[in-house]
Write a protein that binds this DNA or RNA. Structure first.
Length: 754
RNA sequence: UGCCCUGUAGCUCAAUUGGCAGAGCGCCUGGCUCUGGACCAGGAGGUUCCAGGUUCGAAUCCUGGCGGGGCAACCA
């Protein structure tokens, strides 16, 4: 099965390679949450990747609960995780697994390692084990229990299982290497004694496996092919492989790591989220400000938007923090097609239309959708001489570019009439309390022909009827953090106004007809829906899902922000070791060339032998830049040629018999045959295309085929010359003389464009 | 100061494996519009972390340096 999607990232590259090579007939991946908290946006990224991969390649994705720590895990989290995943649209079919179901197998496999002398029971205390592990810069040392015979280890391990030790009395450790540069390999712990009740296994076990021991083995048990985890586990990979090798598992899973998703102004640490919940800073795990899937769901974001966002940010190994703007864009873009437009006034300012009778009432048929959305439907919008508008849609002292109501100014009431503000009533503090406007007769929306409609209003504002609108509470959510990235304490970075409540908002009455989980666009305000937690309350409580893109505030706040110039690090030269210094002096090579040779085993001798009959500078160059990189993992000694032949080649180049291109071609051939450089050179030169006429023909063809680019070149895009040369080289299957091609292309281009 | 991962536009990512440095978001300008939305058109924004080297040609290969992240839980 080949991928249908256009997405290509390093994971998909690996999978394509494995599928093509037949390493696996199909892929099996897994999403492995630990049931100790709620899923958040970061997990959405990981699950979208894994479930997406399975769907794309026709493989399967397992849901596996990594439940090896009885002290933090709970059934409520299992249920919540499953609910969230289903909501996102993922289906794992019958592939719902639990690491805790593998405890017996894991135990047997541990015994296997013990019998092979690869694991031992260590009675050392936690502190002793810690201190003997060494540090990242200093080696560890052996435990006094490290060399216990397998039989004794087996006996004690069984005793551990049978509950004959108290918590912390002993552990099972893999016997690997206490001086390994990777800390994870310094005899890692496999099992600890913990007399705790597991939410699924009850009191069946009093020893529990650690992550490293449980995870890879669970992958193996399930036949996982690609075990995709986040970057912080990359140092664990060596251990992952070690366990699988020790157990001789084949075919075996491989671990690949990608960068977890971070988002500015957002907390994604499970511990910090738990803090917010426990300290009642938020209304539980599903508070609409929370980055949890439960929170995003209650906020009103549709799952498609989350999936599209996760796919659009890509999968890499680069640590990155996302700008929430892209997420918000995905949310809006998704809602735009699904949310009918209605009117709600969050912060009402009463307006009396003075030239309408006091008992005036009419019903305006207004479309739910704007002209650019191909959907039908209208609702009736009550209108009278008393209406409410948004307080900030009126300004006595308007800033430049203000497109709303001002004293004496006119605006269009959306779907209704044009009005002119004639009088402003204020209270004793100077606060605007009431507006009096006159309605321009005949300006009703849609009646373009009347003279009144010809007037150009300053803008269009939304409104509701004062008498026949309904009270609602509107809640506006903002980032949980006031800083993009949490530097110090969580509490210091919290945004004090992450929730703004408008408790006297008024909404058009059409909503009583609608399903309570209908999502709307409140015109000019944003996308909203009823908070599902308070679906029964009166007045109804609406959550703002996301604001509208707002260009009215942009110019003021952002345009002046100039990106600070990054400080470019200066380069420096490391001090050479005495050995290196001596070698450079003896060889007479530059540092770059010399050190490249210095590092490869056997390369120094090779260089010295080859330099006997060819200039050492040339030999060095060709070795460092061409020969050594071409070697790959092969040692120098396995080459089908020796220093003598190499030296011959360099001489051919040096005295001008072979061009650099020809020399490189010959070297390529020498890697696979044992013919002499002279023979090969003859062959290469034979096959090289240097007939100017043939080349000119080829160049003409290329320039003709890419005539649009020739024009671009003529217009100043000179970088295209390399492109033309490349095309000619490709067409000649690498047989053309590039230097010559370059010259001819330049000539030709100059001729055409002059 | 060890091992591993990693540096391309403000952000997130591409670049057919050595041949045009691009896209989306954000920003700006204009158009359209009865939403300061959506849509359409255009624009600005680059020392591809730096310094050398190889090459006709380097984001890509080589050497050195600098920066960011991770690893020393009886957590995962």
């Amino acid at each position: 099965m080949t991928p249908s999607s256009a997405i290509n990232d390093f994971i998909r590259t690996i999978i394509n390679r494995d599928l093509e090579a037949g390493t696996h007939p199909r892929i099996v991946v897994r999403f492995p949450p630990e049931p100790n908290g709620f899923l958040h946006i970061g997990h959405a990224k990981s699950s979208t990747l894994n479930f997406g991969l399975a769907a794309e390649y026709g493989g399967q994705c397992h849901l596996r609960f990594d439940d090896t720590n009885p002290e933090t895990e709970d059934l409520q989290y299992v249920d919540a995780i499953k609910r969230d995943l289903r909501w996102l649209g993922f289906d794992w079919g019958e592939h719902e697994y639990y690491a805790s179901d593998y405890f017996e197998t894991l135990y047997e496999w541990a015994c296997r390692l013990i019998r092979k002398g690869l694991a031992y029971v260590d009675d050392s205390s936690e502190n002793v084990i810690r201190s003997m592990r060494g540090t990242v810069t200093s080696p560890g040392s052996h435990s006094i229990y490290r060399d216990r015979p397998p039989e004794e280890n087996l006996e004690r391990f069984e005793a551990m299982r049978l509950g004959q030790f108290h918590d912390g009395a002993c552990v099972l450790r893999a016997k690997i290497d206490m001086v390994h540069p990777n800390m994870k390999m310094r005899d890692p712990l496999m099992y600890r004694v913990r007399h705790a009740t597991h939410y699924r296994r009850g009191d069946q076990w009093c020893i529990y496996p650690f992550y490293d021991w449980a995870h890879g083995q669970s992958d193996a048990i399930e036949g996982v092919t690609h075990s995709i985890c986040t970057l912080e586990f990359s140092t664990n990979r060596v251990l992952y492989d070690w366990y699988l090798d020790a157990l001789d598992i084949n075919p075996r899973p491989r671990q690949y790591e990608f960068a977890r998703m971070n988002m500015e102004y957002t907390v994604t640490s499970k511990r910090k989220l738990l803090n917010l919940v426990n300290e009642h800073v938020v209304d539980g795990w599903s508070d609409p400000r929370m980055p949890t899937l439960a929170g995003l769901r209650r906020r009103g974001i549709r799952p498609e938007a989350i999936r599209i966002f996760c796919e659009s940010v890509g999968t890499t190994k680069v640590d990155s923090t996302h700008d929430p703007a892209l997420f918000e864009y995905c949310i809006r873009d998704n809602l735009n097609q699904h949310a009918p437009r209605i009117h709600c006034v969050q912060d009402p300012l009463p307006v009396t239309l003075t030239n309408l009778p006091e008992d005036h009432e009419e019903d305006i048929e207004a479309p739910y959708w704007p002209h650019d959305i191909a959907k039908e439907g209208t609702r009736s919008l009550p209108f009278s001489n008393e209406i409410l508008i948004e307080r900030n849609d009126f300004s006595e002292d308007p800033p430049k570019g203000f497109r709303r109501l001002t004293p004496g100014g006119i605006v269009r009431l959306r779907h209704a009439y044009i009005v002119r503000c004639t009088h402003v009533e204020k209270n004793e503090h100077g606060k605007v309390m009431h507006l009096y406007c006159e309605l321009l007769k005949g300006s009703r929306s849609g009646s373009d022909s009347s003279p009144a409609s010809q007037q150009k209003p300053q803008g269009t504002i939304h409104w509701v009827d004062a008498r026949r609108s309904l009270p609602v509470i509107a809640r506006e959510y903002h980032h949980l953090l006031s800083v993009p990235v949490l530097e110090d304490e969580l509490w210091a970075g919290l945004n004090p106004s992450s929730l703004i409540e408008y408790s006297h908002a008024r909404i058009e009455p059409s909503i009583v007809e609608d399903s309570p989980n209908q999502r709307y666009q409140f015109v000019r305000l944003g996308y909203y829906w009823r908070d599902p937690k308070f679906i029964e309350t009166s007045p109804p409580i609406f959550n703002r899902i996301v604001s509208l893109r707002d260009s009215s505030t942009r110019t003021k706040s952002k345009s002046t922000a100039v990106a600070p110039k990054k400080d470019k690090p200066r380069s420096a030269q490391r001090a050479l070791t005495p050995d290196e210094k001596q070698w450079l002096q003896r060889s007479g090579l530059s540092a770059a060339t010399g050190l490249a040779i210095y590092q490869i085993p056997g390369a120094q001798a090779f260089f010295e032998d080859a330099s006997e009959s060819a200039p050492s500078a040339s030999v060095g160059n060709w070795m460092a830049n061409q020969l050594l990189p071409a070697l790959g993992d092969r040692p120098l000694s396995e080459l089908p040629f020796g220093p003598n032949e190499f030296s011959q080649l360099v001489q051919l180049f040096d005295c001008g018999v072979a061009s650099s291109h020809e020399t490189r071609e010959v070297l390529k051939l020498m890697l696979t045959t044992d013919e002499s450089p002279t023979e090969l050179l003859a062959r290469v030169q034979d096959s090289i295309l240097s007939d100017p006429e043939a080349l000119r023909k080829m160049i003409a063809d290329v320039l003709l085929e890419y005539s649009d680019r020739v024009q671009a070149y003529a217009a100043g895009k000179v970088g295209l010359k390399g492109f033309f040369v490349g095309q000619v080289m490709k067409r000649s299957h690498g047989k053309a003389n590039p230097k010559q091609v370059q010259e001819l292309v330049s000539e030709e281009l100059a001729r055409i464009t002059s």
